[in-house]
Design a binder for these strands. Structure first.
Lengths: 345, 345
DNA sequence: GTGAAAGCGCTAACAA
DNA sequence: TTGTTAGCGCTTTCAC
């Protein structure tokens, strides 16, 4: 069943070397010989053995993608794009889920798997910058998304502060004055929540509004249920928000569902917006206004960085790549006008 | 940087064999020696070379997961569970997206990658049963989900006919009589749509209702936008449905969004239900009634099958494993009662 | 244009 | 209990 180069060589009556040349397309082979070898190749249904190849080449052709969870729409969309982009570069992607577990992140950075991958893309979550720094020198590494300290390794992200500022400014522009923020994560050491929080404050500040602690909500994770719970608390505790800026779309969708269950009108009673630009947002009821990072470009740039690190021995200083984003305004903030919005792709 | 067994052996002043024993934990090593070796191991930061190991073992420790697209919630949830379950068995998962492309499916079945994976889990989409059969004999193979012909290889799926019947029966039980079906895919050769269609008919039949072609809608893909378009057409063409059974949750969410945009009340004017039990369904407005396959069990059984095929040379006849499902009844079909439903996890 | 052979790093059969 | 060594299948240098 499993035929090796040797078998093909024997059948074709040539040496192993010649078969190898035919398979790889390298080296010069006489047309006559090539045909003979190809016939043998086909007859035996030869498939190269990757393990042997890798051992020889010192590379595996695999790259790792470490994300908190595949299950969440933002990461699955991103992962899909990374897998696609990697394929174009003849890389195969191995996906690891860290579930926000610091030990899992640590293990991946240390490369426990034993040089399984040629490079690693990681979206850190629970690890402190110092610890990341200490471990970042093994395999080529790129920090992904908005949750990584700059200066340690290449990093690809959107400008979270600016984006959160724009989001908040959009709500302010609609005349909202009691804008809640859902998604603070003071217990985590990634910068995302902090940066979005900062942008939110900056916008309020420019509008001459003082931040109200009663309107700022901490969440444990970024799932819909946390958004739902935060919104419930906000309403129960009489914070009386007239708008909600959720730091992720999932949180926003949870908040939206809560508003719906409470019989509130969105956006009349309370406007809601999210961040991430996931597909669900477009089809929510009402459709959710959100900040959309250019995910395709994120995937592309991340792989570009990795390729540079893997193939170019010359060590360039860590790059900090900022990917564009834009606001997608829908019914959850502008109401009727957006209500009649017909989705297009 | 990259140290090999040989280096460790030299440093510890023992043979390569002893180091190997310490690393793998096999073989008996004197406590004294072990400590010495361990010290050397730590000092050099030794990491085994997987490629070499694989070459030796004749296995790569990788399994492939081929799905239409990672991007869709149903598949990303499933993929997340498969990755997790695989990890417990010390397997690493390589994800491939076929995007419903027959050539991509063909290539994967043929194992173009060259024995990269020890086994393959595939959710076929565009390939005909005959073709699947012809190619199914290379690496151990398990067909995943509801889209695979039985009898060719192991297969894990829910009972689609029964599930669709239950779904339709639920709507009939609410007094609905003009129940539309969204999600027919006569152009595809996978059985899913056909089976759900069959269950839908069976239920109508038992209720003494004749199927109305005007209520049955074909879709090109299973995305939300297709559900949206199908619902639009249904309404525009005056089919006057009082309920919609969408063959997937994504389609249902598209339909729901369309109903919302048209100002229809769900479920008063039209009840909507889906199939797949994705997380978005729970938080839709109104929350979506859906058929929930036990995804965790699907992942578990799929890996079990693969493990059996990979480790047991004895060739058992192909198994056809049916995984349980249940109806999750929410506001999109039962209205107010379910409206006050507070999500719990 | 083709063949012979070394060796990638590891495991395990055989020796001591 | 530990050392020596053959090969896993492939690529590639060196020789013809």
């Amino acid at each position: 069943m499993t035929s090796r180069l040797k078998d093909v060589a024997a059948l074709a009556g040539v040496s192993i070397r010649t078969v190898s040349n035919v398979v790889s397309g390298s080296g010069a082979v006489a047309e006559h010989t090539r045909a003979k070898v190809q016939a043998a190749l086909d007859e035996l249904g030869y498939r190269p053995n990757v393990a042997a190849r890798n051992l020889r080449a010192g590379r595996t052709g695999l790259i790792g993608l470490a994300i908190p969870e595949l299950h969440s729409p933002y990461f699955s969309e991103l992962a899909g794009l990374v897998v696609q982009a990697a394929q174009q570069r003849s890389w195969t992607v191995v996906i690891d889920q860290t579930f926000g577990d610091p030990d899992a992140e640590r293990r991946l950075l240390e490369g426990t798997g034993g040089r399984l991958v040629d490079g690693l893309i990681i979206s850190p979550w629970a690890l402190r910058p110092e610890e990341l720094a200490a471990r970042a020198q093994r395999t080529p590494l790129v920090f992904l998304g908005e949750r990584s300290p700059a200066g340690l390794a290449d990093r690809v992200a959107v400008d979270n502060v600016a984006a959160a500022d724009e989001a908040t400014t959009h709500l302010l522009g609609l005349g909202r004055r009691r804008i809640a923020a859902i998604g603070l994560q003071p217990h985590l050491h990634n910068g995302t929540a902090r940066q979005r929080h900062e942008g939110y404050h900056a916008a309020l500040d420019r509008a001459g509004l003082a931040p109200d602690p009663a309107l700022e909500r901490t969440v444990e994770t970024l799932h819909r249920k946390d958004g739902y719970a935060a919104m419930s608390a906000l309403l129960d505790e009489g914070a009386e928000p007239d708008a909600v800026f959720a730091f992720t779309d999932e949180l926003a969708l949870g908040a939206l569902h809560c508003a719906h269950n409470r019989g509130l009108c969105v956006p009349e009673d309370v406007a809601v917006m999210g961040f991430d630009g996931i597909d669900d947002a477009r089809y929510a009821n009402p459709a959710l206004t959100t900040v959309v990072p250019d995910k395709r470009q994120i995937a592309e740039r991340v792989l570009q960085c990795l390729a540079d690190r893997i193939y170019s021995p010359a060590s360039v200083p860590p790059q900090d790549i900022v990917v564009p984003h834009h606001l997608e305004i829908r019914a959850s903030t502008v109401g009727r006008a957006g209500e009649s919005y017909e989705p297009t792709h």
